[in-house]
Each structure stands twice: as structure tokens, then as C-alpha cells.
């Protein structure tokens, strides 16, 4: 159940403006793919290394997207105001976002919020199992985690294993009142929505969360960072450049 996308609001949206004709319904299936340095993600295995020589695994990838926009070739915006929960587990790496009743035509870009805008950052919107997985404590501002990216790592030349847990979310604590969601804009070359189903891939390279140009960050710096604004800021910047788009099968 956990890896089902949080689909309720989008269903409501569809019912409000969708047509009943399934075959004709111009819909878009976005497969959310996850890689590490370009290689398809395999969870729970110490398969990966960064440029600093740290070996690591990935054990948890949970995150939210919200307020998606499809940008038409002529610049017009098609807005889908909803939230989507992506939660991978080693038994089932499938994660999709399904959009229906879209205007036909050519598109050039997909925009979305990584994390949750204030209107979606609401504990009462999610079922109990998702709340248990993603709740952000009241004393740090409440709402939900935007991302949990976790795994184990070892330092170069060292045997000992450690954990990293890179969690993002809004931080409201003491005199801090900081938003940590951000807008990503991904060029979508070749995206054309016709009658029926169009399938595309949106890929997130997990290593790029820890990379900025030629700067490589150690995983030791991304342990327990929920109340560290400077780390959240780094992730918000790096997170712009972790995406790539492709048409399925191409």
C-alpha cells in the first residue's frame, strides 16, 4: 500500500472534469525512475561510491511532489493542483504519476514542486500509514517530511558502517521559519499528448543530491539535518539538477 501514490485529490480532479471515455481520454503516465550515478537503483546493496571514495547503499526513498504544471509548446500552462507520494520499497520499485483528461498537443517542459506547498503540507490529508512514515514533528513546525533518503555508508579505507538520513521539510523552530520546498523545471523534449495513453519517464539521480558542479559532499554531512537550514539550502539547490526526462521506449 505504501508505494501507492496518494491519488485521492487527483481522482476528485478527474471526476470534476474528466470524460468517461477511457480509450479517448488523453492521459499521461509518468514513470518515476531512480538511478545512482546513472545506474538503475538497486536498494539495500552496498553497490555505490561517490567521488570522495565513500561506499554507500540506499535503503529508503520516500518523497512528495505537488502542484505539477505541463508547459505547452506555445508556453501555455496546464496545471494539475494535487500532491503525489512516492515511496519505493525493495520488493516493488514501481512508482507512477497518472494524469488524465489532458489537453491534446505538444509540450516542452514539466514543472513541479519538490515537496509540498503550504496548502498540501497538511497531516490530515494523508492516511495513517503515510502519516506514520512522513510526519514532521510539531516542535519543528509540523506538517510532513518532503523527503526521506536513507542508507548506509562507509568512509574511504574504513570498514565501519554508518547511517545517513537526508530528510527535508519546512523548518519552523525558535525564530526560524523556513520553507524548503522548491520548484523543479524539467525540459520535456518530444512530449506530445494524443488520444489514449502516453508514457514517459522522469528520472531522479540520487547521487546528484550530494553534488553541486564540481563540489562533492560527504554523506557524513547529511546525517540528522532536519534542523540544519544550511544543509536544507544545499539540497534545495542541488535538487534542481537531478532530473531527466525521456519518452518511454526511446
Amino acid at each position: 500500500m505504501k508505494n501507492l501514490l496518494f491519488a485521492l485529490p487527483i481522482l476528485v480532479f478527474l471526476m470534476a472534469c474528466g470524460s468517461d471515455d477511457k480509450v479517448e481520454n488523453p492521459s499521461l503516465k509518468i514513470n518515476m525512475l531512480h538511478t545512482v550515478d546513472g545506474a538503475k537503483l538497486k536498494m539495500d546493496a552496498m553497490l555505490y561510491a561517490n567521488d570522495l571514495g565513500e561506499q554507500f547503499s540506499v535503503t529508503k526513498v520516500n518523497y512528495y511532489l505537488s502542484e505539477l504544471e505541463l508547459v505547452k509548446a506555445n508556453g501555455e500552462l496546464v496545471k494539475i493542483d494535487s500532491m503525489w507520494y512516492i515511496s519505493l520499497n525493495p520488493q516493488n520499485m514501481e512508482a507512477t504519476i497518472n494524469l488524465q483528461s489532458l489537453p491534446l498537443g505538444d509540450y516542452q517542459q514539466i514543472n513541479f514542486i519538490f515537496g509540498l506547498t503550504d496548502k498540501w503540507n497538511d497531516q490530515s490529508l494523508v492516511p495513517v500509514d503515510q502519516l506514520q512514515a512522513m510526519i514532521w514533528p510539531e516542535n519543528m513546525g509540523g506538517g510532513l517530511h518532503f523527503m526521506k533518503l536513507e542508507g548506509r555508508f562507509s568512509l574511504p579505507e574504513a570498514e565501519a558502517l554508518n547511517g545517513y538520513n537526508t530528510h527535508m521539510g519546512n523548518l519552523k523552530m525558535g525564530d526560524m521559519d523556513l520553507d524548503h520546498f522548491f520548484k523543479a523545471e524539467v525540459p520535456a523534449a518530444g512530449l506530445s499528448v494524443g488520444q489514449g495513453l502516453t508514457e514517459v519517464n522522469l528520472e531522479m539521480d540520487l547521487l546528484k543530491w550530494y553534488t553541486h558542479g564540481s563540489t562533492h559532499y560527504s554523506l557524513t554531512e547529511f546525517q540528522a539535518i532536519m534542523n540544519k537550514p544550511e544543509k536544507q539550502a544545499i539540497l534545495m539547490e542541488n535538487g534542481q539538477n537531478i532530473w531527466s526526462f525521456s519518452i518511454k521506449g526511446e
Partner: peptide, 24 residues
């Protein structure tokens, strides 16, 4: 409480919500 509900002691991630467990 502040130790429990921050990453200083980091108990809340698993002993989560008012149920103090995460169903996992």
C-alpha cells in the same frame, strides 16, 4: 520531549505520531 521529537535523540522517526509507533 525536545530530545525525543528532534534528531538529537531521534526517537520519533520510528516511535512516530501520537501512536508512538510507525506500523513498520
Amino acid at each position: 520531549y525536545d530530545l525525543f521529537f528532534t534528531e538529537d535523540a531521534d526517537c520519533f522517526h520510528c516511535h512516530s505520531t501520537v501512536l508512538f509507533r510507525d506500523g513498520d
